[in-house]
Design a binder for these strands. Structure first.
Length: 172
DNA sequence: TTAGTGATATCC
DNA sequence: GATATCACTAAA
């Protein structure tokens, strides 16, 4: 079942671990579908989080994060890789969850390459998009918290936060 | 370990 | 206008 507005309309620290183990579904223009189980996410939480893109305030790039929960935020990193995020929390609060990996692709850049995600999906809704959405298939998994990576520019205390979430074993 | 790559932010 | 930066990857 496709995740609804209420799922994303919560704090990113609740949404991020909940997304681990869910099915990311991508529909291509030729009609084929790709279904991948999410195995790693990271939470980025507001202007007070120095690792979050929005911590310096609203810009043309980060304005999507301030928008409605369920919006897709895609941006280019290091000139090569598209990174896929979903906006969470209250309208007006810059929060998001980075989809870092799935069981078939172990890196945020590899994931978007496999799914053919690019900026054409930026600022579209994962709730209503015919091209990309997330489903709950009813299975439950252990979630293992860890520190975020690749954010050396953030403050020391923000780097220590356990805001990365990895897939553990299935809970039956 | 390091080169590659280009949009964005920041500084003239 | 220019340049420094960056939530990464693949090759060596």
């Amino acid at each position: 079942m496709r995740l609804n507005e209420a799922f994303y309309h919560r704090d990113c620290l609740q949404v991020a671990p909940d997304l681990v183990g869910k099915m990311l579904v991508r529909r291509l223009e030729d009609g084929s579908q790709i279904r991948l189980r999410i195995s790693e996410t990271e939470a980025y939480r507001g202007e007070e989080d120095t690792a979050c893109h929005a911590h310096k305030g609203k810009t043309n790039r980060t304005k999507v994060l301030y928008g409605e929960p369920g919006q897709i935020y895609v941006y280019l990193c290091y000139g090569i890789h598209w990174l896929l995020n979903v906006v969470t929390g209250e309208l007006g609060l810059p929060q998001g969850v980075l989809i870092r990996a799935c069981t078939e692709a172990d890196g945020p850049g590899k994931l978007t390459k496999k799914l053919k995600v690019d900026k054409t999906l930026n600022d579209t809704s994962i709730l209503t998009s015919p091209w990309l959405w997330i489903e709950d298939d009813g299975k439950h998994y252990q979630v293992i918290p860890d520190t975020r990576v690749g954010i050396g520019y953030a403050s020391e205390e923000d780097q220590k936060r356990l805001w990365r979430f990895k897939l553990g074993g299935e809970i039956k």
